[in-house]
Design a protein around this nucleic acid. Structure first.
Length: 472
DNA sequence: TAAGCTGACGTGGACTCATT
DNA sequence: AATGAGTCCACGTCAGCTTA
């Protein structure tokens, strides 16, 4: 509250009218100021009220705005989330469609598999039944065996049935057909693979080298063909066996300044037994009541004389697979040279009466019969005969060398010229016979020849031209 | 012209490694 | 264990070239 300004003169002196007015004005002004202050205070109060009021309104509006802003934000957010969800939804729908397609495909496959399994079950039962029937030895469902079929079309029909059945079992898998061939080979129904020994023969007969042999196998496989050849490792292993120094012996001789090399088998019985066992195991030879027939063959070709054994109990005795080389030397073919260079072979052959052959799980003694083969020159050499131009020209009898057929004899084919034999000739033959027997002592086949001579001597020898049946 | 040299090539044997 | 493929090395052969 303002205090009115009051002015008095110090000494009680009266103031002039102007001053009085001035004082009055001053008082008035003071009152005005006071009023103004009151107004100001009122105004401030009013302003404050207005401000408060405005602040309140503003806050309210701000709040509302904020709320609205938040609401908009929320809405925006919701909208964003919604569009993302929409996108996600689209992706999910695509995925769903894909999965449904896959599911339907899987369902389809499953159905197929189920059908196959059902069929397989049926087929399995049929297979088991078929195998059981086969094991029981029941007849196949065909009236005529294939080997008895004549009609070409019927043969192909049968083949087509088999083809279809095979394809049902093996499909397109080439492995199946390879394994099948192996099985057929094991059963002896189809031979498509060479034995190791056959491979060895092919390898050397074809003059192949290691590299060429390998190349041949590579090309066979590369072209998709079946490779019937054994591996080069097997060839190498077999070479060590058949060419081993354990089995062969090489001797060197000098004859009249000429070098002679001879090779002979060390153990004839061992080689022969192994070969026959192999033939039996491969079904090429059957050991039964018959003895083992062996033919001794010899021949000179080129510069060398070769001696070998042929096994007669096989379908093809002259096949290289059934020949056993006994010896070879590069000198003249003669009795002396055979005994000189291949003496151990001759001795072993003379002792060869039985062979131990494996039949099943047992080793049984099979008797051996030896025969003399080869050309006439070799046969003469083998029994010590001088040859066709000798005085006693026949290896079987003691007939004298035949006369040349002259025009005066007028002989026709088939005619037998009777000859009377003198007592001197008979005695001469008997001496020769003893010499021959002594010379060939121990040789089984030769002894058989001597026995034949004796029989003829005892039973009477009608004619030297009587056909002499070879004992070999 | 014959002998010697050289490089390319083929070969066998030994060996390793991966696969069956 | 058997097999196949590959590598390495020593050796033999042969054609082409050089040299005495």
């Amino acid at each position: 509250m303002s205090t009115p300004l009051r002015m008095t003169t110090p000494l009680g002196v009266s103031l002039s009218s102007d001053l009085k007015r001035a004082l009055q004005d001053n008082e008035k002004l003071t009152r005005d100021v006071s009023d103004a202050k009151l107004l100001k205070e009122d105004a401030e109060i009013k302003l404050k009220k207005i401000r408060n009021k405005l602040n309140g309104e503003h806050s309210e509006k701000l709040g509302k705005l904020n709320d609205k802003y938040k609401a908009v934000q929320e809405e925006l957010k919701t909208m964003k989330q919604s569009s993302q969800l929409k996108r996600e939804k689209g992706v999910l729908e695509t995925e769903n469609r894909r999965l449904e397609t896959a599911k339907s495909e899987l369902d389809r496959q499953l159905l197929g598999k189920n059908d196959e399994l059902r069929m397989a079950d049926v087929e399995k039962v049929e297979d088991v039944k078929m195998i059981r029937d086969l094991k029981a030895g029941k007849r196949p469902p065909f009236k005529t065996e294939f080997k008895n079929l004549i009609s070409r079309s019927e043969k192909f029909r049968r083949i087509e049935i088999a083809r279809a059945e095979l394809q049902r079992c093996g499909g397109e898998a080439s492995e199946f057909y390879c394994l099948l061939l192996g099985r057929l080979s094991k059963l002896g129904l189809l031979k498509w693979k060479m034995s190791k020994r056959e491979g060895l023969y092919l390898y050397h007969a074809s003059n192949l080298t290691r590299r060429r042999f390998t190349k041949l196998k590579q090309m066979l496989r590369g072209s998709g063909c079946i490779d019937p050849l054994p591996s080069i490792h097997e060839i190498k292993k077999l070479e060590k066996v058949v060419g081993s120094s354990d089995q062969l012996k090489v001797t060197e001789h000098t004859v009249d300044g000429k070098s002679v090399v001879a090779v002979h088998l060390l153990d004839v019985v061992k080689m022969l037994t192994e070969r026959i066992n192999e033939l039996v195991a491969n079904g090429k030879m059957v050991v039964g009541d018959d003895p083992i027939w062996l033919t001794i063959l010899g021949d000179k070709g080129s510069e060398e004389f070769k001696l070998c054994l042929s096994i007669g109990n096989v379908s093809q005795p002259n096949s290289c697979f059934h020949l056993i080389p006994l010896g070879i030397f590069n000198d003249d073919e003669s009795s002396e040279n055979i005994r000189k260079y291949l003496g151990p072979i001759v001795e072993q052959l003379n002792r060869l009466l039985f062979l131990k052959i494996k039949v099943g799980d047992k080793d049984i003694d099979v008797p051996v019969e030896q025969y003399l083969g080869g050309d006439m020159k070799f046969q003469c050499d083998a029994i010590g005969h001088e040859g066709g131009n000798s005085t006693y020209q026949c290896m079987q009898c003691f007939s004298l060398r035949g006369q040349s057929i002259s025009r005066s004899m007028q002989l026709k084919r088939g005619d037998i010229k009777k000859t009377r034999i003198s007592k001197a000739v008979v005695n001469d033959r008997a001496e020769k016979l003893e010499e021959l027997e002594e010379f060939l002592s121990g040789t089984k086949c030769a002894l058989q020849i001597v026995q034949n001579f004796k029989n003829r001597q005892v039973n009477g020898y009608k004619s030297p031209s009587e056909p002499c049946r070879a004992a070999m």
